[in-house]
Design a protein around this nucleic acid. Structure first.
Lengths: 279, 279
DNA sequence: GCCCGTCGATACCGCACCGGTATCGGCTTT
DNA sequence: AAAGCCGATACCGGTGCGGTATCGACGGGC
Protein backbone atom coordinates (compact mmCIF):
# COMPACT_ATOMS: atom_id res chain seq x y z
CA UNK A 1 0.00 0.00 0.00
CA UNK A 2 1.26 3.49 -0.79
CA UNK A 3 1.59 6.27 1.75
CA UNK A 4 -0.66 8.39 -0.46
CA UNK A 5 -3.43 5.89 0.13
CA UNK A 6 -2.78 5.85 3.86
CA UNK A 7 -2.90 9.63 3.99
CA UNK A 8 -6.18 9.64 2.09
CA UNK A 9 -7.70 7.07 4.36
CA UNK A 10 -6.61 8.86 7.52
CA UNK A 11 -8.11 12.10 6.24
CA UNK A 12 -11.48 10.49 5.55
CA UNK A 13 -11.42 8.49 8.77
CA UNK A 14 -10.74 11.62 10.78
CA UNK A 15 -13.21 13.88 9.02
CA UNK A 16 -15.84 11.20 8.44
CA UNK A 17 -16.82 13.27 5.44
CA UNK A 18 -15.46 12.77 1.91
CA UNK A 19 -15.87 16.39 0.83
CA UNK A 20 -14.07 17.91 3.81
CA UNK A 21 -11.35 15.26 3.65
CA UNK A 22 -10.81 16.00 -0.05
CA UNK A 23 -10.47 19.72 0.46
CA UNK A 24 -8.13 19.12 3.39
CA UNK A 25 -6.02 16.97 1.05
CA UNK A 26 -6.20 19.57 -1.68
CA UNK A 27 -7.87 17.26 -4.19
CA UNK A 28 -11.40 16.83 -5.51
CA UNK A 29 -13.87 14.44 -3.95
CA UNK A 30 -14.24 11.85 -6.74
CA UNK A 31 -10.60 10.71 -6.82
CA UNK A 32 -10.79 10.34 -3.07
CA UNK A 33 -13.86 8.12 -3.28
CA UNK A 34 -12.07 5.98 -5.84
CA UNK A 35 -8.91 5.76 -3.80
CA UNK A 36 -10.81 4.53 -0.74
CA UNK A 37 -12.60 1.94 -2.87
CA UNK A 38 -9.27 0.81 -4.22
CA UNK A 39 -7.87 0.42 -0.71
CA UNK A 40 -10.91 -1.59 0.33
CA UNK A 41 -10.54 -3.80 -2.74
CA UNK A 42 -6.82 -4.22 -2.07
CA UNK A 43 -7.35 -5.22 1.55
CA UNK A 44 -10.53 -7.16 0.90
CA UNK A 45 -12.21 -5.36 3.76
CA UNK A 46 -14.93 -2.76 4.25
CA UNK A 47 -13.36 0.16 6.10
CA UNK A 48 -16.16 2.73 6.06
CA UNK A 49 -19.92 2.43 6.28
CA UNK A 50 -21.29 5.20 4.12
CA UNK A 51 -24.76 6.48 3.34
CA UNK A 52 -25.39 9.75 1.61
CA UNK A 53 -25.91 11.27 5.04
CA UNK A 54 -23.17 9.83 7.17
CA UNK A 55 -19.81 8.07 7.12
CA UNK A 56 -18.63 5.85 9.95
CA UNK A 57 -15.67 3.56 10.65
CA UNK A 58 -16.02 -0.20 10.71
CA UNK A 59 -13.97 -2.16 13.20
CA UNK A 60 -11.36 -2.90 10.53
CA UNK A 61 -11.37 0.79 9.64
CA UNK A 62 -10.58 1.72 13.22
CA UNK A 63 -7.66 -0.70 13.21
CA UNK A 64 -6.34 0.75 9.98
CA UNK A 65 -6.68 4.30 11.30
CA UNK A 66 -4.51 3.48 14.29
CA UNK A 67 -1.95 1.51 12.29
CA UNK A 68 -1.86 3.98 9.42
CA UNK A 69 -1.06 6.86 11.75
CA UNK A 70 1.85 4.88 13.18
CA UNK A 71 3.06 3.94 9.70
CA UNK A 72 2.85 7.52 8.43
CA UNK A 73 4.77 8.69 11.48
CA UNK A 74 7.45 6.14 10.70
CA UNK A 75 7.72 7.32 7.10
CA UNK A 76 7.88 10.93 8.17
CA UNK A 77 10.52 10.05 10.74
CA UNK A 78 12.56 8.34 8.04
CA UNK A 79 12.54 11.48 5.92
CA UNK A 80 13.36 13.83 8.75
CA UNK A 81 16.13 11.75 10.25
CA UNK A 82 17.71 11.27 6.84
CA UNK A 83 17.65 14.99 6.16
CA UNK A 84 19.18 15.67 9.53
CA UNK A 85 21.87 13.03 8.99
CA UNK A 86 22.69 14.58 5.63
CA UNK A 87 23.54 17.98 7.05
CA UNK A 88 26.58 16.40 8.64
CA UNK A 89 26.05 18.25 11.91
CA UNK A 90 25.36 15.40 14.32
CA UNK A 91 23.41 17.62 16.71
CA UNK A 92 20.80 16.18 19.04
CA UNK A 93 17.30 17.55 19.38
CA UNK A 94 15.81 17.35 22.86
CA UNK A 95 12.19 18.25 23.55
CA UNK A 96 10.73 19.13 26.90
CA UNK A 97 7.51 20.66 28.11
CA UNK A 98 7.87 24.41 28.28
CA UNK A 99 8.30 25.34 31.95
CA UNK A 100 8.71 21.83 33.34
CA UNK A 101 11.85 20.28 34.79
CA UNK A 102 13.81 23.45 34.10
CA UNK A 103 16.36 22.79 36.80
CA UNK A 104 16.85 19.14 35.89
CA UNK A 105 17.23 20.05 32.23
CA UNK A 106 19.90 22.61 33.00
CA UNK A 107 21.86 20.10 35.06
CA UNK A 108 21.50 17.49 32.36
CA UNK A 109 22.79 19.77 29.62
CA UNK A 110 25.75 20.81 31.78
CA UNK A 111 26.62 17.23 32.65
CA UNK A 112 26.43 16.09 29.04
CA UNK A 113 28.44 19.02 27.73
CA UNK A 114 31.24 17.96 30.09
CA UNK A 115 31.36 14.46 28.59
CA UNK A 116 34.02 13.68 26.03
CA UNK A 117 32.60 13.58 22.53
CA UNK A 118 29.51 15.59 23.39
CA UNK A 119 27.71 17.15 20.42
CA UNK A 120 25.52 20.24 20.24
CA UNK A 121 22.09 19.80 21.82
CA UNK A 122 19.21 21.71 20.31
CA UNK A 123 16.57 22.20 23.00
CA UNK A 124 12.98 22.57 21.84
CA UNK A 125 10.27 23.50 24.27
CA UNK A 126 6.82 22.46 23.18
CA UNK A 127 3.26 22.17 24.37
CA UNK A 128 2.11 19.48 26.75
CA UNK A 129 1.56 16.09 25.09
CA UNK A 130 3.51 17.15 22.00
CA UNK A 131 6.84 15.58 22.92
CA UNK A 132 5.78 12.03 22.25
CA UNK A 133 4.76 12.91 18.71
CA UNK A 134 8.02 14.74 18.12
CA UNK A 135 9.92 11.61 19.05
CA UNK A 136 7.79 9.37 16.90
CA UNK A 137 7.92 11.45 13.72
CA UNK A 138 11.63 12.15 13.86
CA UNK A 139 11.58 15.80 14.84
CA UNK A 140 13.39 15.01 18.06
CA UNK A 141 15.92 12.47 19.31
CA UNK A 142 15.24 12.52 23.04
CA UNK A 143 12.52 13.88 25.29
CA UNK A 144 11.91 14.56 28.95
CA UNK A 145 8.58 13.00 29.88
CA UNK A 146 6.59 12.84 33.09
CA UNK A 147 4.97 9.66 34.23
CA UNK A 148 2.16 8.95 34.78
CA UNK A 149 0.95 11.86 32.62
CA UNK A 150 2.85 11.08 29.43
CA UNK A 151 2.65 7.72 27.75
CA UNK A 152 6.03 6.05 27.33
CA UNK A 153 4.62 3.12 25.42
CA UNK A 154 6.98 2.05 22.67
CA UNK A 155 9.83 4.21 23.85
CA UNK A 156 13.00 3.33 25.68
CA UNK A 157 13.30 5.26 28.94
CA UNK A 158 15.55 5.89 31.89
CA UNK A 159 14.15 7.22 35.18
CA UNK A 160 15.71 10.45 36.38
CA UNK A 161 13.72 11.81 39.29
CA UNK A 162 10.60 11.02 41.31
CA UNK A 163 8.92 13.75 43.29
CA UNK A 164 5.68 14.68 45.01
CA UNK A 165 3.27 17.34 43.87
CA UNK A 166 2.20 20.69 45.26
CA UNK A 167 -0.84 22.84 44.77
CA UNK A 168 -0.07 26.16 43.11
CA UNK A 169 -2.42 28.97 44.19
CA UNK A 170 -2.66 32.72 43.75
CA UNK A 171 -0.67 34.54 46.43
CA UNK A 172 -2.93 35.60 49.26
CA UNK A 173 -5.51 32.87 48.71
CA UNK A 174 -6.92 31.73 52.09
CA UNK A 175 -5.70 28.17 51.69
CA UNK A 176 -2.05 29.25 51.28
CA UNK A 177 -1.77 29.31 55.08
CA UNK A 178 -2.36 25.56 55.24
CA UNK A 179 0.53 23.15 55.74
CA UNK A 180 -0.93 20.67 53.27
CA UNK A 181 -4.00 20.01 51.15
CA UNK A 182 -5.74 16.92 49.77
CA UNK A 183 -6.57 16.31 46.12
CA UNK A 184 -10.24 16.49 47.01
CA UNK A 185 -9.83 19.92 48.58
CA UNK A 186 -7.94 21.25 45.58
CA UNK A 187 -10.45 19.83 43.13
CA UNK A 188 -13.36 21.56 44.83
CA UNK A 189 -12.06 25.03 45.49
CA UNK A 190 -14.87 27.42 44.59
CA UNK A 191 -13.91 29.73 41.73
CA UNK A 192 -10.53 28.09 41.16
CA UNK A 193 -11.05 25.22 38.71
CA UNK A 194 -8.22 22.92 37.67
CA UNK A 195 -7.09 23.56 34.12
CA UNK A 196 -7.76 21.19 31.21
CA UNK A 197 -4.69 19.77 29.49
CA UNK A 198 -4.78 18.67 25.85
CA UNK A 199 -5.22 14.99 25.10
CA UNK A 200 -2.60 13.25 22.92
CA UNK A 201 -4.81 13.92 19.89
CA UNK A 202 -4.82 17.66 20.54
CA UNK A 203 -8.42 17.92 21.71
CA UNK A 204 -9.42 19.07 25.17
CA UNK A 205 -11.69 17.22 27.59
CA UNK A 206 -14.86 19.10 28.44
CA UNK A 207 -15.19 20.69 31.86
CA UNK A 208 -15.13 23.97 33.72
CA UNK A 209 -11.40 24.85 33.80
CA UNK A 210 -9.49 26.92 31.24
CA UNK A 211 -7.72 25.19 28.34
CA UNK A 212 -3.97 25.29 28.84
CA UNK A 213 -1.06 24.47 26.53
CA UNK A 214 1.99 24.90 28.71
CA UNK A 215 3.17 25.83 32.17
CA UNK A 216 3.78 29.50 31.43
CA UNK A 217 0.17 29.95 30.35
CA UNK A 218 -0.99 28.08 33.40
CA UNK A 219 1.04 30.06 35.91
CA UNK A 220 -0.23 33.30 34.46
CA UNK A 221 -3.83 32.13 34.75
CA UNK A 222 -3.24 31.15 38.38
CA UNK A 223 -1.72 34.53 39.15
CA UNK A 224 -4.86 36.10 37.67
CA UNK A 225 -6.96 34.08 40.09
CA UNK A 226 -8.64 32.11 37.30
CA UNK A 227 -7.33 28.66 38.11
CA UNK A 228 -5.38 26.48 40.50
CA UNK A 229 -3.16 23.55 39.67
CA UNK A 230 -1.33 20.58 41.12
CA UNK A 231 2.22 20.42 39.77
CA UNK A 232 5.46 18.57 40.56
CA UNK A 233 7.51 20.11 43.35
CA UNK A 234 10.23 21.14 40.95
CA UNK A 235 7.84 23.64 39.39
CA UNK A 236 8.72 25.59 42.51
CA UNK A 237 11.82 26.99 40.84
CA UNK A 238 9.58 28.72 38.32
CA UNK A 239 7.29 30.36 40.84
CA UNK A 240 6.89 34.09 40.66
CA UNK A 241 6.11 36.35 43.57
CA UNK A 242 2.40 36.37 42.85
CA UNK A 243 2.05 32.62 43.38
CA UNK A 244 2.12 30.34 46.42
CA UNK A 245 2.42 26.62 46.87
CA UNK A 246 1.08 24.06 49.36
CA UNK A 247 2.10 20.38 49.43
CA UNK A 248 -0.51 17.81 48.36
CA UNK A 249 0.67 14.55 49.93
CA UNK A 250 -2.01 12.35 48.38
CA UNK A 251 -1.32 13.46 44.80
CA UNK A 252 0.35 10.79 42.65
CA UNK A 253 4.13 11.04 42.63
CA UNK A 254 5.59 12.15 39.34
CA UNK A 255 8.60 10.52 37.69
CA UNK A 256 10.65 12.46 35.18
CA UNK A 257 12.16 10.15 32.57
CA UNK A 258 14.40 10.65 29.58
CA UNK A 259 12.97 8.81 26.57
CA UNK A 260 14.13 8.02 23.04
CA UNK A 261 12.83 6.01 20.10
CA UNK A 262 13.97 2.43 20.50
CA UNK A 263 15.75 1.91 17.21
CA UNK A 264 17.67 5.18 17.24
CA UNK A 265 20.83 3.70 18.61
CA UNK A 266 23.06 6.67 17.93
CA UNK A 267 26.25 7.31 19.85
CA UNK A 268 25.08 10.77 20.79
CA UNK A 269 21.77 9.61 22.28
CA UNK A 270 23.59 6.96 24.27
CA UNK A 271 25.97 9.58 25.64
CA UNK A 272 23.17 11.90 26.66
CA UNK A 273 21.29 9.11 28.38
CA UNK A 274 24.44 8.04 30.14
CA UNK A 275 25.01 11.56 31.41
CA UNK A 276 21.38 11.71 32.52
CA UNK A 277 21.42 8.41 34.34
CA UNK A 278 24.04 9.55 36.85
CA UNK A 279 22.81 13.00 37.70
CA UNK B 1 7.65 9.89 0.29
CA UNK B 2 5.89 6.85 -1.15
CA UNK B 3 6.39 3.31 0.03
CA UNK B 4 7.34 2.38 -3.53
CA UNK B 5 10.30 4.72 -3.26
CA UNK B 6 11.27 3.29 0.12
CA UNK B 7 11.12 -0.23 -1.26
CA UNK B 8 13.29 0.76 -4.21
CA UNK B 9 15.83 2.42 -1.99
CA UNK B 10 16.01 -0.52 0.39
CA UNK B 11 16.57 -2.90 -2.50
CA UNK B 12 19.47 -0.84 -3.86
CA UNK B 13 20.93 -0.22 -0.42
CA UNK B 14 20.88 -3.93 0.35
CA UNK B 15 22.21 -5.12 -3.00
CA UNK B 16 24.58 -2.20 -3.53
CA UNK B 17 24.05 -2.88 -7.23
CA UNK B 18 21.39 -1.23 -9.40
CA UNK B 19 21.04 -4.10 -11.82
CA UNK B 20 20.51 -6.78 -9.20
CA UNK B 21 18.20 -4.53 -7.20
CA UNK B 22 16.12 -3.86 -10.30
CA UNK B 23 15.71 -7.51 -11.16
CA UNK B 24 14.86 -8.28 -7.55
CA UNK B 25 12.14 -5.62 -7.78
CA UNK B 26 10.95 -6.95 -11.10
CA UNK B 27 11.61 -3.73 -13.00
CA UNK B 28 14.31 -2.51 -15.37
CA UNK B 29 17.38 -0.68 -14.19
CA UNK B 30 16.79 2.80 -15.69
CA UNK B 31 13.53 3.54 -13.82
CA UNK B 32 15.29 2.49 -10.66
CA UNK B 33 18.16 4.90 -11.25
CA UNK B 34 15.64 7.67 -11.83
CA UNK B 35 13.65 6.81 -8.73
CA UNK B 36 16.74 6.96 -6.53
CA UNK B 37 17.69 10.31 -8.06
CA UNK B 38 14.19 11.56 -7.36
CA UNK B 39 14.43 10.48 -3.71
CA UNK B 40 17.77 12.21 -3.36
CA UNK B 41 16.34 15.37 -4.89
CA UNK B 42 13.29 15.17 -2.64
CA UNK B 43 15.38 14.77 0.51
CA UNK B 44 18.11 17.10 -0.61
CA UNK B 45 20.70 14.51 0.37
CA UNK B 46 23.12 12.17 -1.35
CA UNK B 47 22.24 8.62 -0.25
CA UNK B 48 24.56 6.54 -2.42
CA UNK B 49 28.09 7.09 -3.68
CA UNK B 50 28.22 5.47 -7.08
CA UNK B 51 30.92 4.92 -9.62
CA UNK B 52 30.50 2.63 -12.57
CA UNK B 53 32.27 -0.04 -10.53
CA UNK B 54 30.78 0.22 -7.08
CA UNK B 55 27.85 1.55 -5.08
CA UNK B 56 28.15 2.41 -1.41
CA UNK B 57 25.96 3.99 1.24
CA UNK B 58 26.61 7.46 2.57
CA UNK B 59 25.96 8.14 6.23
CA UNK B 60 22.57 9.59 5.39
CA UNK B 61 21.88 6.55 3.25
CA UNK B 62 22.59 4.26 6.17
CA UNK B 63 20.14 6.22 8.30
CA UNK B 64 17.47 5.99 5.62
CA UNK B 65 18.04 2.25 5.23
CA UNK B 66 17.39 1.67 8.92
CA UNK B 67 14.42 4.01 9.07
CA UNK B 68 12.93 2.83 5.80
CA UNK B 69 12.93 -0.77 6.96
CA UNK B 70 11.06 0.26 10.11
CA UNK B 71 8.60 2.33 8.10
CA UNK B 72 7.95 -0.46 5.60
CA UNK B 73 7.39 -2.87 8.47
CA UNK B 74 4.85 -0.46 9.92
CA UNK B 75 3.01 -0.19 6.61
CA UNK B 76 3.00 -3.94 6.19
CA UNK B 77 1.75 -4.34 9.75
CA UNK B 78 -1.08 -1.91 9.03
CA UNK B 79 -2.22 -4.00 6.08
CA UNK B 80 -1.96 -7.31 7.86
CA UNK B 81 -3.67 -6.19 11.04
CA UNK B 82 -6.48 -4.59 9.09
CA UNK B 83 -7.04 -7.75 7.09
CA UNK B 84 -7.08 -9.78 10.27
CA UNK B 85 -9.51 -7.39 11.94
CA UNK B 86 -11.79 -7.61 8.91
CA UNK B 87 -12.25 -11.35 9.14
CA UNK B 88 -14.18 -10.80 12.34
CA UNK B 89 -12.44 -13.69 14.07
CA UNK B 90 -10.58 -11.95 16.87
CA UNK B 91 -7.99 -14.70 17.17
CA UNK B 92 -4.55 -14.01 18.58
CA UNK B 93 -1.35 -15.09 16.90
CA UNK B 94 1.47 -16.06 19.23
CA UNK B 95 4.97 -16.84 17.97
CA UNK B 96 7.63 -18.77 19.81
CA UNK B 97 10.91 -20.34 18.90
CA UNK B 98 10.36 -23.90 17.80
CA UNK B 99 11.44 -26.16 20.66
CA UNK B 100 11.94 -23.47 23.29
CA UNK B 101 9.83 -22.85 26.38
CA UNK B 102 7.52 -25.67 25.43
CA UNK B 103 6.37 -26.31 28.98
CA UNK B 104 5.85 -22.66 29.78
CA UNK B 105 3.92 -22.18 26.58
CA UNK B 106 1.61 -25.08 27.36
CA UNK B 107 0.90 -23.70 30.82
CA UNK B 108 0.29 -20.25 29.42
CA UNK B 109 -2.19 -21.46 26.83
CA UNK B 110 -4.05 -23.49 29.46
CA UNK B 111 -4.19 -20.59 31.89
CA UNK B 112 -5.43 -18.18 29.24
CA UNK B 113 -8.02 -20.58 27.89
CA UNK B 114 -9.50 -20.74 31.40
CA UNK B 115 -9.93 -16.96 31.54
CA UNK B 116 -13.35 -15.52 30.84
CA UNK B 117 -13.52 -13.98 27.37
CA UNK B 118 -10.54 -15.89 26.04
CA UNK B 119 -10.28 -16.05 22.25
CA UNK B 120 -8.64 -18.64 20.02
CA UNK B 121 -4.84 -18.51 20.06
CA UNK B 122 -3.01 -19.45 16.90
CA UNK B 123 0.46 -20.67 17.85
CA UNK B 124 3.19 -20.26 15.26
CA UNK B 125 6.60 -21.78 15.80
CA UNK B 126 9.34 -20.10 13.86
CA UNK B 127 13.09 -19.97 13.49
CA UNK B 128 15.32 -18.23 15.98
CA UNK B 129 15.39 -14.45 15.62
CA UNK B 130 12.26 -14.48 13.48
CA UNK B 131 9.75 -13.68 16.21
CA UNK B 132 10.68 -10.05 16.54
CA UNK B 133 10.09 -9.45 12.87
CA UNK B 134 6.72 -11.21 13.04
CA UNK B 135 5.65 -8.83 15.78
CA UNK B 136 6.86 -5.78 13.95
CA UNK B 137 5.26 -6.52 10.60
CA UNK B 138 1.89 -7.55 11.98
CA UNK B 139 2.06 -11.28 11.39
CA UNK B 140 1.84 -11.91 15.13
CA UNK B 141 0.28 -10.24 18.16
CA UNK B 142 2.45 -11.62 20.95
CA UNK B 143 5.74 -13.48 21.19
CA UNK B 144 7.77 -15.40 23.69
CA UNK B 145 11.29 -14.01 23.68
CA UNK B 146 14.44 -14.84 25.58
CA UNK B 147 16.65 -12.19 27.03
CA UNK B 148 19.48 -11.50 26.58
CA UNK B 149 19.44 -13.28 23.20
CA UNK B 150 16.45 -11.57 21.64
CA UNK B 151 16.20 -7.82 21.43
CA UNK B 152 13.08 -6.44 23.10
CA UNK B 153 13.81 -2.90 22.05
CA UNK B 154 10.63 -1.09 21.13
CA UNK B 155 8.35 -3.77 22.50
CA UNK B 156 6.32 -3.92 25.66
CA UNK B 157 7.25 -6.94 27.76
CA UNK B 158 6.41 -8.83 30.91
CA UNK B 159 8.94 -11.15 32.54
CA UNK B 160 7.77 -14.72 33.00
CA UNK B 161 10.67 -16.87 34.07
CA UNK B 162 14.40 -16.60 34.75
CA UNK B 163 16.54 -19.70 34.69
CA UNK B 164 20.11 -20.86 34.44
CA UNK B 165 21.62 -22.71 31.50
CA UNK B 166 22.90 -26.21 30.98
CA UNK B 167 25.29 -27.74 28.50
CA UNK B 168 23.66 -30.27 26.20
CA UNK B 169 26.01 -33.03 25.08
CA UNK B 170 25.77 -36.33 23.22
CA UNK B 171 24.95 -39.18 25.62
CA UNK B 172 28.09 -40.99 26.64
CA UNK B 173 30.40 -38.03 26.13
CA UNK B 174 33.18 -38.11 28.77
CA UNK B 175 32.17 -34.77 30.28
CA UNK B 176 28.62 -35.95 31.04
CA UNK B 177 29.92 -37.43 34.27
CA UNK B 178 30.83 -33.97 35.57
CA UNK B 179 28.60 -32.21 38.09
CA UNK B 180 29.09 -28.86 36.35
CA UNK B 181 31.02 -27.18 33.56
CA UNK B 182 32.25 -23.67 32.86
CA UNK B 183 31.54 -21.67 29.72
CA UNK B 184 35.23 -21.83 28.87
CA UNK B 185 35.24 -25.62 29.07
CA UNK B 186 32.19 -25.89 26.86
CA UNK B 187 33.56 -23.46 24.31
CA UNK B 188 36.77 -25.40 23.89
CA UNK B 189 35.58 -28.97 23.66
CA UNK B 190 37.58 -30.59 20.87
CA UNK B 191 35.36 -31.76 18.02
CA UNK B 192 32.17 -30.35 19.54
CA UNK B 193 31.84 -26.73 18.37
CA UNK B 194 29.01 -24.48 19.53
CA UNK B 195 26.46 -23.86 16.79
CA UNK B 196 26.03 -20.56 14.99
CA UNK B 197 22.62 -18.89 15.35
CA UNK B 198 21.29 -16.52 12.70
CA UNK B 199 21.65 -12.79 13.26
CA UNK B 200 18.52 -10.65 13.19
CA UNK B 201 19.19 -9.95 9.51
CA UNK B 202 19.18 -13.64 8.65
CA UNK B 203 22.91 -13.98 8.04
CA UNK B 204 25.18 -16.20 10.08
CA UNK B 205 28.39 -15.19 11.83
CA UNK B 206 31.45 -16.94 10.52
CA UNK B 207 33.07 -19.62 12.62
CA UNK B 208 33.55 -23.35 13.00
CA UNK B 209 30.13 -24.54 14.28
CA UNK B 210 27.19 -25.70 12.18
CA UNK B 211 24.50 -23.20 11.14
CA UNK B 212 21.29 -23.82 13.06
CA UNK B 213 17.75 -22.48 12.65
CA UNK B 214 15.85 -23.98 15.57
CA UNK B 215 16.17 -26.21 18.59
CA UNK B 216 15.05 -29.40 16.87
CA UNK B 217 17.84 -29.09 14.31
CA UNK B 218 20.30 -28.35 17.05
CA UNK B 219 19.36 -31.32 19.25
CA UNK B 220 19.68 -33.66 16.32
CA UNK B 221 23.15 -32.35 15.50
CA UNK B 222 24.19 -32.81 19.10
CA UNK B 223 22.89 -36.37 19.13
CA UNK B 224 24.99 -36.98 16.02
CA UNK B 225 28.06 -35.82 17.91
CA UNK B 226 28.56 -32.82 15.63
CA UNK B 227 27.97 -30.02 18.11
CA UNK B 228 27.36 -29.09 21.72
CA UNK B 229 25.20 -26.28 23.04
CA UNK B 230 24.38 -24.24 26.10
CA UNK B 231 20.61 -23.92 26.51
CA UNK B 232 18.15 -22.80 29.19
CA UNK B 233 17.35 -25.45 31.79
CA UNK B 234 13.81 -25.78 30.53
CA UNK B 235 15.12 -27.28 27.31
CA UNK B 236 15.49 -30.32 29.55
CA UNK B 237 11.88 -31.30 28.92
CA UNK B 238 12.75 -31.73 25.25
CA UNK B 239 15.75 -33.97 25.78
CA UNK B 240 15.74 -37.33 24.08
CA UNK B 241 17.49 -40.43 25.33
CA UNK B 242 20.54 -39.83 23.20
CA UNK B 243 21.35 -36.52 24.90
CA UNK B 244 22.71 -35.56 28.30
CA UNK B 245 22.93 -32.30 30.21
CA UNK B 246 25.36 -30.74 32.67
CA UNK B 247 24.75 -27.46 34.54
CA UNK B 248 26.86 -24.45 33.51
CA UNK B 249 26.69 -22.12 36.51
CA UNK B 250 28.64 -19.27 34.95
CA UNK B 251 26.46 -19.03 31.82
CA UNK B 252 24.28 -15.93 31.72
CA UNK B 253 20.80 -16.48 33.17
CA UNK B 254 18.02 -16.44 30.60
CA UNK B 255 14.74 -14.61 31.08
CA UNK B 256 11.70 -15.66 29.12
CA UNK B 257 9.41 -12.70 28.46
CA UNK B 258 6.11 -12.25 26.73
CA UNK B 259 6.28 -9.31 24.33
CA UNK B 260 3.82 -7.36 22.20
CA UNK B 261 3.93 -4.29 19.96
CA UNK B 262 3.36 -1.24 22.12
CA UNK B 263 0.42 0.32 20.34
CA UNK B 264 -1.54 -2.88 19.93
CA UNK B 265 -3.65 -2.40 23.01
CA UNK B 266 -6.26 -5.00 22.21
CA UNK B 267 -8.43 -6.63 24.84
CA UNK B 268 -7.23 -10.06 23.84
CA UNK B 269 -3.53 -9.24 24.13
CA UNK B 270 -4.14 -7.70 27.54
CA UNK B 271 -5.94 -10.85 28.67
CA UNK B 272 -3.16 -13.12 27.50
CA UNK B 273 -0.50 -10.99 29.17
CA UNK B 274 -2.54 -10.96 32.34
CA UNK B 275 -2.80 -14.73 32.32
CA UNK B 276 0.94 -14.96 31.66
CA UNK B 277 1.93 -12.58 34.42
CA UNK B 278 0.53 -14.79 37.16
CA UNK B 279 1.72 -18.18 36.07
C1' DG C 1 -46.01 16.24 -1.28
C1' DC C 2 -42.97 18.37 -4.14
C1' DC C 3 -38.73 20.70 -4.48
C1' DC C 4 -34.28 21.61 -3.31
C1' DG C 5 -29.87 20.88 -1.03
C1' DT C 6 -26.39 17.66 0.41
C1' DC C 7 -23.25 14.01 -0.34
C1' DG C 8 -21.09 9.94 -2.12
C1' DA C 9 -20.68 7.33 -6.59
C1' DT C 10 -20.06 7.16 -11.53
C1' DA C 11 -18.61 8.68 -16.24
C1' DC C 12 -15.35 10.53 -18.94
C1' DC C 13 -11.08 12.94 -20.15
C1' DG C 14 -6.31 14.85 -20.20
C1' DC C 15 -1.84 14.66 -18.58
C1' DA C 16 1.86 13.34 -15.49
C1' DC C 17 4.65 9.79 -14.44
C1' DC C 18 6.06 5.14 -14.25
C1' DG C 19 8.30 1.57 -16.69
C1' DG C 20 10.17 -0.12 -21.02
C1' DT C 21 14.01 -0.27 -24.87
C1' DA C 22 18.04 1.71 -26.90
C1' DT C 23 22.17 3.92 -26.16
C1' DC C 24 25.86 6.53 -24.06
C1' DG C 25 30.03 7.31 -21.20
C1' DG C 26 33.30 5.91 -17.86
C1' DC C 27 36.04 2.49 -15.83
C1' DT C 28 38.39 -1.95 -15.33
C1' DT C 29 40.43 -5.97 -17.23
C1' DT C 30 43.26 -8.68 -20.34
C1' DA D 1 43.50 -1.35 -27.71
C1' DA D 2 39.46 -3.91 -27.38
C1' DA D 3 35.89 -5.80 -24.77
C1' DG D 4 32.78 -6.01 -20.95
C1' DC D 5 30.40 -4.21 -17.04
C1' DC D 6 27.56 -0.72 -14.99
C1' DG D 7 25.08 3.42 -14.00
C1' DA D 8 23.06 7.52 -16.47
C1' DT D 9 20.51 9.51 -20.22
C1' DA D 10 17.15 9.78 -24.11
C1' DC D 11 12.94 8.74 -25.73
C1' DC D 12 8.42 6.45 -26.00
C1' DG D 13 4.00 4.20 -24.75
C1' DG D 14 0.47 3.05 -21.34
C1' DT D 15 -1.40 3.15 -16.81
C1' DG D 16 -3.59 5.67 -13.51
C1' DC D 17 -4.18 9.87 -10.93
C1' DG D 18 -6.79 13.99 -10.66
C1' DG D 19 -9.94 17.04 -12.88
C1' DT D 20 -15.06 18.44 -14.33
C1' DA D 21 -19.75 17.08 -15.09
C1' DT D 22 -23.43 14.45 -13.63
C1' DC D 23 -26.14 10.93 -11.35
C1' DG D 24 -28.80 8.88 -7.58
C1' DA D 25 -30.18 8.56 -2.83
C1' DC D 26 -31.66 10.66 1.13
C1' DG D 27 -33.60 14.53 4.27
C1' DG D 28 -35.58 18.75 5.36
C1' DG D 29 -38.60 22.68 4.54
C1' DC D 30 -42.39 25.42 2.93
Amino acid sequence: METRELRYFVAVAEELHFGRAASRLGIAQPPLSRAIQQIERHLGAVLLERTSRSVSLTEAGAVLLREARAALDAVEAAERRTRRAATGRPGLVLVAKAGASAELLAKLLDAYAAEPGAVAVDVQLCAIAEQERHLRDGRADVALLHRPFDSTVGLDTEELLTEGQVAVLPAGHPLTTRKSLTMAEVAEMPGLPLPRWPCPDGSYPSGPGPEVRDHAQLLQLIALGRAAAVLPESAWSQLRGDLAMVPVPDAPRVTTVIAWPPHSRSRAVAGLVHAASRL
